[in-house]
Computed example of a mutant assay.
Amino acid sequence: MTAAELATPRMDFELPPELEAHEPPEARGTPRDGVRLLHGQGSTVSHHRFTDLPGLLRGGDLLVVNTSGTLPASVPVAGAPLRVHFSTELADGRWLVEVRGADLGRRPGQPGPLRLPGGGTVTLEEPYSRGRLWFASVKTRTSVIEFLHRHGQPIRYPYVRRQWPIEAYQTVFATQPGSAEMPSAARPFTDRVVTRLVSAGVQIAPLVLHTGVASPEAHERPYPEWFRVPSGTARLVNETRAAGGRVVAVGTTAVRALETVAGEDGRVVAGEGWTDLIVTPARGVRAVDGLLTGLHEPKASHLDLLAAVVDRDLLARCYAEAVRAGYLWHEFGDVNLLLR
Rank of each mutant, 00 (worst) to 15 (best):
R192M: 05
G112D: 03
P177T: 10
A136C: 07
K139Y: 09
L114D: 03
W164N: 09
I204N: 00
A200H: 14
G120C: 05
G212S: 06
Y169T: 10
K139H: 15
A136F: 07
E220M: 08
P154Y: 05
T211R: 05
H210W: 08
Q170L: 06
S129Q: 11
R132S: 09
D191W: 10
V138S: 12
Y159Q: 13
P183R: 08
T175F: 00
R141C: 02
P183Y: 04
F135W: 14
R107D: 11
S143W: 12
S199A: 15
G178Y: 12
G178V: 08
H151C: 08
A186S: 14
G131S: 00
R162W: 01
T171F: 06
Q110V: 13
A174E: 01
R192H: 14
G131K: 09
V122G: 05
A180S: 15
P111I: 09
P108H: 12
A180D: 04
A185E: 03
L148P: 01
S199L: 15
Q110E: 13
E220S: 13
E126F: 04
V172L: 13
H149G: 09
F173I: 06
P117N: 07
R106V: 15
Q110W: 09
L114N: 10
V138G: 02
I166W: 00
Y223K: 08
R192V: 12
T171V: 06
Y128K: 06
R100N: 10
D103P: 10
R115T: 12
G119W: 07
V198F: 03
P113F: 00
T142V: 14
S143M: 01
Q163D: 15
P230M: 09
F173N: 02
G105H: 12
F135C: 05
R187Y: 07
E167H: 09
V208E: 08
L114C: 04
A102L: 08
Y159M: 11
